[in-house]
Structures are given as structure tokens and as C-alpha cells.
Simulated scan of single mutants.
Amino acid sequence: MNEKVSALMDNELPAEQWPEVLDALKREPLLQQQWHDWHVSRDALQGQAGCSADFMRRFSARLAAEPVVIAPQRKQAFGAKRWLVPMTAAASVAFVGLAVWQFNFVPSSSTQPQQLAAVVTPAAQHKQVDAAEVRAYLAAHRDGVANPMGADHLARVSFEVGEQR
């Protein structure tokens, strides 16, 4: 057993044998004394200051005499942290609901030209519009990237009051 204790002290003992040697060290006072003596000898050879033989007993007694401090329970912060998760969940549900509602119930901007003509108010029918100027503007901007009035969507525009095609 002395060889195994020496190998453990030099960190050369295989890990699977550690429990056996440590159990023997716990049970046998002679092995404990050898363990202590070998460490004192090694420390003296390396020039390190040694501890007294009574050090561990005194240290354990002082540690046992230390008062146990039980930390008070942390107060909950009122407001942001307590409501953060429920509010983000509610915001997510509201966003998804709004997106579904817009997709299903709000008419898209790509309405047909016949529907656009039906929306004209009587006040707008009396305005004078220069048709050539509007046609030139639409022709210049027809091929825009995000232009809803692009070539595919603009079939026919009439500037005549009362005429529908």
C-alpha cells in the first residue's frame, strides 16, 4: 500500500485506483502519518516552508467555529424584468394576429383599373388634368423597380370625365 500512496502523492497512480488508496488513507492512521511525513520531506527538499503537524486539526476547528451566514432573499425588481417575458409573448401574438388579419382582410394595392374608376369622387370629376403631362410622367416611371403602376398593372387609363373602358 505504501507504493500506491507514494504513486498517488507523485500523481503517477492510475485514476481507477484512487478510491482504494483514499479509503485506506481515511481508515489507517499510520498511512495518514506517512502521507504527512512524506509531504513535509518533499516541501523541505524543495525549500518550501512547512506547516506544523497540528495545522489541519487547528484549521478544521477554526472552520467549524465560523458562523454560518445565510444571505437574505433577493428582492424582486418591480417592473421591467418581471413583465418582460409575458409582454414579449403578448407582442408576438399581436404581431402574428395583425399580419394574418392584413393578409386575409385588407384589400391589396393591386386592384383592377375598373375598380379604381369606381372610387372617383364627384369633386375629383371636375378637376382639369393635363392628360399629356400625366402620360409622359407615367411613361417615364413605368419601368421602376417598386412601381405599382408598372407595365403589367397599367392596362388603360382614361382622363375623360364620365367615360369608363
Rank of each mutant, 00 (worst) to 15 (best):
V120H: 07
A49Y: 10
D43P: 01
Q34H: 03
S52F: 04
M56R: 12
D54C: 08
A123M: 11
S109Q: 11
K81A: 12
Q76E: 13
A132W: 04
L22F: 10
V40K: 00
W83D: 07
T111G: 05
A61V: 09
Q125D: 10
Q128F: 09
L84I: 01
V129R: 00
S110T: 14
A117C: 13
G144D: 12
Q114Y: 12
R27E: 14
R27K: 14
S60H: 12
R27L: 12
S108M: 05
A80N: 06
R57N: 11
P72V: 01
Q125V: 09
P122H: 09
Q128S: 13
K81E: 15
P72K: 08
P86F: 02
Q48V: 06
R57P: 00
R57G: 11
V145N: 09
T88V: 13
A89N: 04
V106C: 03
D23T: 09
G97Q: 01
G50A: 04
V134Y: 00
S52K: 10
F95K: 01
F95H: 08
P86G: 00
R62D: 14
S41Y: 01
D54P: 04
G79A: 08
D130H: 07
H36T: 04
M87L: 14
A64T: 12
W83N: 11
A140T: 11
V100Y: 03
G50D: 01
V68E: 08
A118I: 07
Q34E: 11
L98Q: 04
P67C: 03
A139H: 11
A132K: 12
A132Y: 02
W35F: 10
V93W: 02
M56F: 15
V68C: 04
A77Q: 10
R135F: 03
R58K: 14
P113Q: 07
E66T: 09
Q125L: 14
E28A: 03
R27I: 10
Q32R: 13
Q73Y: 00
A118R: 14
A77M: 13
Q112S: 15
M87C: 06
F103R: 10
F55I: 06
R74W: 00
P72L: 01
S41V: 03
G144C: 11
S41R: 05
E28L: 06
F105G: 05
R58G: 06
L30F: 03
L45T: 02
M56V: 10
P113R: 02
Q73V: 10
E28Y: 07
L98N: 05
Q112A: 15
G47L: 01
P107Q: 12
Q114W: 10
Y137F: 15
G47C: 01
